[in-house]
């Protein structure tokens, strides 16, 4: 059974350290709703073979938030999988920093480590700094990282508007759709629906 935990930044006490032993599985979701400014530092250590961690993150910073997220994903032994998927919508004069470090130890062969941090920037005055860092000391690994900071897709916006969907609704749909893959990691359907509604309300407030 995979252990699933969700933490709301600014509300919950987020533990700084997670350690996974042999065959342990953990799904972790971090959520930062509008109005939350804080620093989050996570250190996740995979020290038993077959351990697996999925780390998801959603941050909505449409105002003047200051949010810093730093993650160290440490693969101490081989045969473990880690994946990170962060999605942010940043506007106003908010400033967001994402620092994602993946460390793969010398003999942690057959490691799989993935990291993604994608951002939609709503204003020119908002700022996102995303800095992935890979330190890989083993040679037989699969690792990838990707980071983007972009605007809402104009073609998708036009496509929806050409079907009569008002501009604000088209923006809303696209933002919700952008967050959807991370939301999908919530295993319980009722809980997922609750969170989805919470995020939709938050997204509407940024339009």
């Amino acid at each position: 059974m995979t252990d699933f935990r969700i933490y709301f930044a600014g509300r919950d006490d987020i533990p700084g350290e997670f350690t996974l032993g042999r065959d342990e599985k953990l799904d972790l979701l971090l959520v930062a709703l509008p109005g939350v400014s804080c620093s989050i530092a996570l250190h996740i250590t995979l020290e038993g073979e077959g351990a697996e961690v999925n780390l998801g993150g959603i941050y909505l910073c449409p105002g003047n938030e200051r949010l810093d997220i730093s993650v160290t994903m440490e693969h101490k032994v081989g045969g473990c999988i880690s994946s990170q998927d962060f999605k942010g919508i940043v506007g106003g004069t908010a400033q967001v920093g994402f620092y994602g470090r993946i460390v793969v130890a010398h003999d942690a062969q057959k490691t799989e480590a993935y990291q993604a941090d994608h951002n939609i920037l709503l204003t020119d005055t908002a700022k996102v700094t995303t800095r992935p860092q890979l330190e890989i000391y083993a040679d037989d690994v699969k690792c990838s990282h990707g980071a983007t900071v972009g605007k809402l897709d104009e073609d998708a916006q036009f496509y929806m508007r050409s079907r009569g969907i008002p501009e604000a609704e088209a923006r809303f749909l696209q933002m919700v759709s952008f967050l959807a893959p991370v939301l999908a990691m919530v295993p319980d359907e009722t809980r997922r629906a609750e969170l989805s509604e919470q995020l939709e309300t938050a997204v509407r407030s940024v339009l």
């Binding site: 073609d155 036009f158 079907r163």
Partner: peptide, 16 residues
């Protein structure tokens, strides 16, 4: 036609 991940045909058409 443009791809819109995360938006189902049903929700898309309901909005329209």
């Amino acid at each position: 036609p443009v791809e819109i991940p995360g938006v189902t045909i049903t929700n898309f058409m309901k909005s329209a």
